[in-house]
Design a protein around this nucleic acid. Sequence first.
DNA 1: GCCAACGTTGGC
DNA 2: GCCAACGTTGGC
Length: 163
Amino acid sequence: MPAFWLLKSEPDVFSYADLMRVGREPWNGVRNYQARNFLRQMEEGDLCLFYHSNARPPGLAGVAQVVRVAYPDDLQFDPASEYYDPRSDPENPRWSMVDVAPVLALPRLLPLDELRELPEWHDSPLTRKGTRLSVFPVTPEQWRAALAAVGVELPPLGKFPPA
DNA sequence: GCCAACGTTGGC
DNA sequence: GCCAACGTTGGC
């Protein structure tokens, strides 16, 4: 069942423009079990809202697509990486990543403030106080409301061209 | 298995 | 830069 998701990224580290530039990116470095479990549920073709966190202002910058389902995050085995996890067993890797590709940049950044005003977004890990989850599902209603707010015409799910 | 200490996230 | 909220760690 295709689904919608939200991915947080700090634009100073990796922005939506960076994703467009590289064309495809392994979504590595997720080190939270709940977020990891969501990554593992993603299917090829699933669509993701790309959120800029720790930005001024924070908000939605674009749409990305899952182009490879979850596989082991190689950084967990790299002692030089800040994401190295010495306790991860190579026989049963603890952390996963997916590959994502750009689909479209929003015509304008949709700021968090504006997102909060959408009734569909009143109940979401994004708007709930104190939640820091960096990967989580988005309902079809949230998806539609967010894109409508920036005037993006919504093709039927799964009809986005492969990036 | 509890829970205090610590580190991180992320808006402001 | 501040700090509230939360997840993780590790002593016991």
